[in-house]
């Protein structure tokens, strides 16, 4: 099962290596990882998406909690959270295909942010399934390159994943 972990960590060098090391040691592949500072510049947030055996993941979470630079770890449930990802997609787009591609982008409320003679770059924001749905449709035109940020998540409502 896929899990989304939200971590508050010290904004210090080496923290990412400490965190990722615990996953690789147990053979977990990290599906996506997004890091950025929080409202407090001394603290960063990592959103990590991993897939793996629940019992082993529970061990990993306990080990993450033991890291001195990790302040808090939450396993965020999809039903109680909102999540977004951003992707940039460079699609092959000759003059003939261009209208159809722009229409697809429009339907997904994506934006065209660069136009070349034979390519378009589309920026899309949404949850993971929305991005997958659009890229699936674009595939037949030929995707030259794609960059995804990895998912970021937040709890719905007033609750927050915060330092206690």
């Amino acid at each position: 099962m896929k899990h989304t972990l939200s971590l508050l960590v010290e904004n210090k060098p080496g923290v990412l290596a400490r965190v990722s090391g615990l996953f690789s040691r147990r053979g977990f592949n990290i599906d996506s990882l997004a890091v950025g500072i929080t409202e407090n510049p001394e603290i960063s947030r990592m959103t990590i998406v991993v897939e793996g055996d629940d019992r082993i993941l529970e061990q990993v979470i306990k080990q993450l909690n033991k890291l001195v630079d990790v302040i808090k770890v939450s396993d965020i449930k999809p039903e109680s959270s909102i999540d977004r990802e951003l992707a940039l997609v460079k699609v092959e787009a000759g003059p003939k295909e261009r209208p159809e591609i722009m229409q697809i982008a429009d339907i997904f409320r994506a934006r065209i942010i660069d136009v070349g003679t034979r390519t378009l770059v589309i920026e899309i924001t949404g949850d993971v399934s929305k991005i997958n749905a659009m890229t699936d449709l674009l595939r037949r035109f030929g995707i030259k390159e794609m960059v995804r940020t990895g998912k970021v998540s937040m709890l719905r409502g007033a609750k927050a994943v915060k330092e206690e």
Partner: peptide, 8 residues
């Protein structure tokens, strides 16, 4: 005098 370790 003191130790400040948020994560420990």
């Amino acid at each position: 005098k003191n130790i400040k370790l948020r994560g420990y």
